[in-house]
Structures are given as structure tokens and as C-alpha cells.
Nucleic acid binder design. Structure first.
Length: 586
RNA sequence: CGGGGUGUAGCUUAGCCUGGUAGAGCGCCUGGUUUGGGACCAGGAGGUCGCAGGUUCAAAUCCUGUCGCCCCGACCA
């Protein structure tokens, strides 16, 4: 039992100017966190309590699923990351943790980094400690602070530079075992989110910088999310937009036959899709081929899309480059022979074809029978271009961004798109890390084999904010029972009156005996202030004790999520409070 | 990093265009009256106007630079 007057809950009437979304405002107004700097927050007592509750639920579900808790360092020798498979890709977001007097040149690699995640730490550990198939499978987890120098921290805890995450890493003897672990984690996640009261949607996801092959994300649908989820209402198809495909090109599609031969025509000053659409050319965007130039691991490559389509950059990840970025005009001209705006991939028109690592075409261009594209000669384009006949394509793939309304890949129904917050992510990693770090075991045939891994994250601090985003009203937060900082708030309107204080104590003890945590608002404030604060901090069950009620022989019981007030006769009050705690309505 | 915005008391902000005494509300302190949905009265404390330079007799206000923060895009739990 805590007394408000002895505790620390700095609530605010007005929300700070730098908080824009509801959950961020409430996080601050309800006294859960305070900002130190961009993406850096202090968890105040109330916020910390919520974090601890979420963590505890997470811990329980992990352990039920057979995972073992440990704790790894936050400071990592940079060397380990340099040995790993993603140093180049991950160093951008890593904080350097050089110690003073390291005497490093500017720009030199850091000696230490702050851990953004822990594959590079757990894998060497397991390599050293586990060598036999008899000791596998194992699944280790920790709940710890992560450090990522996010390019743009935002929305409070939603995307922070320092945040709390549960991360788990599974090690198996083979793929079948790893799949089993993957599914075990996936269902543990479902139980976890159900318990914390977060409604999530599971979607197929891109693996991003993490690497790996299979991946699902747990999303909380919310307007303010920074992911787009593509889904079919009937089919059950749901995928992150970065990964989503549509049935634009049906299975068994037969490309149209080629027509007239390719012909060049002058297009002075026209360097955009829109420019070619306009008079006098009148070429629809859908029958243009857009040629994008990227640099992958130091070499140029081309991506061909229909003029009406947009590149989904994340899909370039499957091409296998460690690092890629759009090429600059200076890099393009010598290889293609023209400036951006006149580029194309028609066979024989590329100045230095061997200067390209490949030409990758989105499969949707196969829908085009006769297209128009740049001639690799400034001021000229080519028409009557047939994808298969004329373009010098290395391979076809899915690179375009899905748009709302396109057909579901399974059922053909129009796809929908909604914003969502990613709160959990499971990856099937395979042997990418174990091979790199030599995490091998000896099987029963005395053969050395790489362990098959999976990794699994839950954003603990982000989940806290997602709870608020999903459960609040105009007056404040409405905490789900399981994660509320306190479950019962006793609003003691006359803390100085002995009879009132006595009832507060008795009812608080009754609630605690029934298993609830209790906060007593014993401040010398007017009732209005207490009620407003009660709604703001969102404790699920409120018991009001005041002179008016006591005169009537009652105390009041009210759920934060309902508007009705129940009057409890004093004689029944303790039992009724205990009964309410046993059957929470939140 | 690109684009947009913004920095004035613990919080929300007015003043800036058109240079000349920094002002309000909330919160805080003291006293009093109040006491079931953010009370009222009286008094009080609290501000290097983000920082640095410049223009000027004079800069919160104009100019330059810089830093922080917020929003939109790429990154992610």
C-alpha cells in the first residue's frame, strides 16, 4: 500500500508542447516519465511500476515456453560486432562507447559500443559453453535496456534512443527444432500480449538488418504507428508493407507478345515520368519503364519498375547486398552513358554493361506489352519496348510497393492498408550468426554442425505506451488490470477525519488480501482535484470514501472504464471490494 | 541527412511583423475563506528571453552563425 502524499506522482494539468499524440501526452501528464533529451526518458515511480508489471508477465510467459533468463552487458567490445555479419549495416545506429584517453584517431573504429541488440554477444557465449547436441536446444532471454541512435526518435517511448526490450535467442540442432522454437515463441507472444491487454495483429515481416529468412511482427493497430500493415479482410493475409505483395501479376500469367521493333525518339528536356505523360508524348505512366540506379557494396545495379509504381526499398534487401543506397548522378553517367531522366535497360544501350552488378526488374513490368524507357542518351527515349524481348534483365522479382485496393495474393479481394505500431518481432535466423561465430555442436554422428538460431524481441517500454495509446479517453489513461501501476485507488476525501481514514485502511487491506496493489490518495486536496487526477492516472478500480457517503452509511466503488458508481453499504464494503478485485472489470 | 516548424519563469504561453519598462494563466510560498469533479480573496517568490557574434544610442524583437526540441520521409522493439 502506498500513500499518495508520501509517494511521487507529478501530474500535469496541461500537456507539454512537445508531446503531440495522446499516449505521449498522457505518459507525461500522468507522471509516468520525464524527458531528459531526444529519445531519452526517466521512468518515474508510476511508469516504472507499469514496466515492471509488463516485464514480469513477459518473464512468466518466456519461462513457460522454456526460455532461460540471463543478463548480458550493455557495453560491447566493438571487435565482436566487427566479426559479426552486420557491422557495416548496424554501425550507423550504434552509440560509440570509447573510454577517455583511448587515443583514437577521429573516424577510427570505436573500441566499445553500446548494445543495440545481442546476437553478437550471445552467439560467442553459446559457442564457448555449448558443444554437444545433448545440451541443445536452448533458448536464452533477458529484459534489458537497448541503445540505438535512432535517426529520428519520436513520440516519447515509441521510438527512443534508449529503451527496454525483452530479447530471446534460441539455439537448435536443426531447422525442424528451430521452427519448433520459433512457433513456441510465437504462441508465447500471443499469450503475453493477451495478458497485458494489448490487441495485436500478427503480420509477415521483412527481416531488415537483422538478417534471417522468416519473420513475423506483432502489431498494434494505431493511427500513429510508423508501420503500414497490408491485409485482406477475408483471406487473413496480413503483412508489413515492406514485405507485402499483391496479386497484380496473377499466377500463371502469360506475358503479351512483343509488337513492333524498338524505336528511338527525341524527348528534349523531358526527364520525368510526368513529362512523358504530358503532351505531345502522352505515354501513360503505366506503360513507362522507370530505371532506378543503386549502389550495392560498391557496384551499381539497376531496378526496373513500371512508371506508375513505387520502389519498396526494403525489398532490395533480398538481393543480398550488405549495404546499398541510391547512386548519385556522377556515379551513373559513366556507366549508363546518360544522366538520370534518360536511363533505360534496353539491351545494347548501356555504355558499360559490365559496370553493373545486375539489372533487377519488378515482375509487374511483364504486364506491359509495349513500353517506353530512356535510351541512355540524354534527350532520347525508346518506344515499343517489350520487357522480355528488349530489356537486359538479370532477374525478375517483387520490388514495388503495394497500394491499397490491389488484389489480395490469395483471394483477389481488394487489400487494405492500416497504420500500426510494432511491439514484437520473431525471426527465424538460421545459421547466419552461428557460422560467422563458429557456434557449432557435435552431433551423435560426431559431426560438427552449426546451430540453427532464432531471435525474438518484445518492446517492453514501447508496449507500455501502446497500452496507453490503445486504452485511454478524454480524461486520461484506462490501464488494463494486469499492467496498471496500482489496481485499486482509494480516494480518501477527508484524510483528516479519523473515521474516513480508518475505512481507507480497512478497505485497502481487504483489497491487498484479495491480491490487488493499492494506492491511497490521502492528499489534502479538494475532491475535484483528486477525481481529475484519478481519471488521469487511470487506476482501474476506484473506491471513494467521503463524509457524505459515510453519513449515508456507504462508500463508493467505480471502475475507470465504466461510468456507473456502486454504493457499498459499510457492513459489506470489505467483502464487496475483495469480490471486485477477484473479478476485475478492466 | 533532406524538408517544415519552434525556442520567453517548473508547465502553457502573449509580446517579435513596426527595436525603447518582459506580461498573463497554471503550478509554488504565506495568510484567510472554502470543501463531492481541476475553489476564491489578499500578498509573495521565480526570467542570462536557447547560445555566440553582428547592426544600433538602444535588441526578446532586425541580421549571421550555432545548438536543442517538435513534425514529415528513410531506420527499428
Amino acid at each position: 500500500m502506498k500513500f499518495w502524499s508520501q509517494y511521487f506522482i507529478p501530474t500535469l494539468k496541461e500537456s507539454p508542447a512537445d508531446a503531440e499524440i495522446a499516449s505521449h501526452r498522457l505518459l507525461i501528464r500522468a507522471g509516468l516519465v520525464r524527458k531528459l533529451g531526444g529519445g531519452l526518458y526517466t521512468y518515474l515511480p508510476l511508469g516504472l511500476r507499469v514496466m515492471q508489471r509488463i516485464s514480469q508477465i513477459c518473464r512468466e510467459e518466456m519461462e513457460k515456453a522454456g526460455a532461460i533468463e540471463l543478463q548480458m552487458p550493455h557495453v560491447h567490445p566493438a571487435e565482436l560486432w566487427q566479426q559479426g555479419p552486420r557491422w557495416a549495416a548496424a554501425r550507423e545506429i550504434m552509440f560509440r562507447a570509447d573510454h577517455a584517453g583511448a587515443g583514437k584517431r577521429a573516424g577510427a573504429d570505436p573500441e566499445f559500443v553500446l548494445g543495440p541488440t545481442h546476437e553478437e554477444i550471445i552467439t560467442p557465449l553459446v559457442k564457448n559453453e555449448i558443444t554437444s547436441y545433448r545440451d541443445l536446444p536452448k533458448n536464452f532471454f533477458q529484459i534489458a535496456t537497448k541503445f540505438r541512435n535512432e535517426i529520428r526518435p519520436r513520440f516519447g517511448l515509441m521510438r527512443a534512443r534508449e529503451f527496454v526490450m525483452k530479447d530471446a535467442y534460441s539455439f537448435d540442432v536443426d531447422e525442424a527444432g528451430a521452427r519448433k522454437n520459433y512457433l513456441a515463441m510465437k504462441s508465447a507472444y500471443e499469450r503475453f500480449f493477451a495478458r497485458v491487454g494489448l490487441k495485436t495483429v500478427v503480420v509477415e515481416a521483412d527481416t531488415g538488418v537483422m538478417g534471417g529468412s522468416d519473420s513475423h511482427e506483432f502489431m498494434v493497430p494505431a493511427e500513429i504507428g510508423d508501420d503500414d500493415v497490408v491485409y485482406g479482410e477475408k483471406s487473413g493475409y496480413a503483412a508489413n508493407r515492406e514485405k507485402a505483395t499483391s496479386g497484380l501479376v496473377p499466377a500463371g500469367f502469360v506475358p503479351p507478345a512483343p509488337g513492333e521493333a524498338v524505336a528511338e525518339f527525341p524527348t528534349p528536356g523531358v526527364t520525368t515520368i510526368a513529362g512523358l505523360e504530358a503532351a505531345p508524348y502522352g505515354v501513360s505512366a503505366g506503360s513507362q519503364f522507370k530505371t532506378l540506379v543503386y549502389v550495392g557494396d560498391g557496384k551499381l545495379f539497376l531496378v526496373i519498375l513500371r512508371g506508375c509504381d513505387e520502389l519498396e526499398e526494403a525489398k532490395l534487401g533480398k538481393l543480398g547486398f550488405t549495404l546499398f543506397r541510391p547512386a548519385t548522378a556522377e556515379e551513373i553517367a559513366p556507366v549508363l552513358g546518360a544522366k538520370p531522366g534518360s536511363l533505360g535497360a534496353v539491351r545494347g544501350t548501356i555504355a558499360k554493361r559490365d559496370g553493373l552488378a545486375g539489372i533487377f526488374a519488378d515482375q509487374a513490368i511483364r504486364l506491359v506489352a509495349s513500353g517506353t524507357t530512356g535510351a541512355n542518351r540524354d534527350g532520347f527515349h525508346l518506344k515499343n519496348v517489350h520487357p522480355a524481348r528488349d530489356l537486359d534483365i538479370t532477374s525478375f522479382g517483387d520490388f514495388r510497393r503495394v497500394r491499397e485496393g490491389e488484389p489480395d495474393p490469395r483471394t483477389g479481394e481488394p487489400l487494405k492498408i492500416a497504420r500500426a505500431i510494432e511491439v514484437g518481432h520473431v525471426f527465424f535466423l538460421g545459421t547466419k550468426y552461428s557460422e560467422k561465430f563458429g557456434a557449432v555442436y557435435t552431433d551423435d554422428q560426431k559431426q560438427a554442425r552449426p546451430m540453427v538460431m532464432g531471435c525474438y524481441g518484445i518492446g517492453i517500454s514501447r508496449s507500455m505506451q501502446a497500452c496507453i495509446e490503445q486504452s485511454h479517453d478524454a480524461d486520461g489513461i484506462r490501464w488494463p488490470w494486469a499492467v496498471a501501476p496500482f489496481q485499486v485507488l482509494i480516494c480518501l476525501l477527508d484524510p483528516g477525519v479519523e473515521e474516513s481514514a480508518g475505512w481507507a485502511k480497512r478497505l485497502a487491506e481487504a483489497a491487498e488480501r484479495a491480491g490487488a496493489s493499492v494506492l491511497v490518495d490521502d492528499r489534502a486536496e479538494r475532491p475535484g482535484v483528486k477525481f481529475k487526477d484519478a481519471d488521469l492516472i487511470g487506476i482501474p478500480l476506484r473506491i471513494t470514501i467521503g463524509g457524505r457517503g459515510l453519513k449515508e452509511g456507504i462508500v463508493e466503488l467505480k471502475w475507470r472504464s465504466h461510468s456507473q458508481v456502486e454504493k457499498l453499504p459499510l457492513a459489506e464494503a470489505e467483502a464487496r471490494v475483495a469480490a471486485a478485485v477477484a473479478q476485475p472489470q478492466a
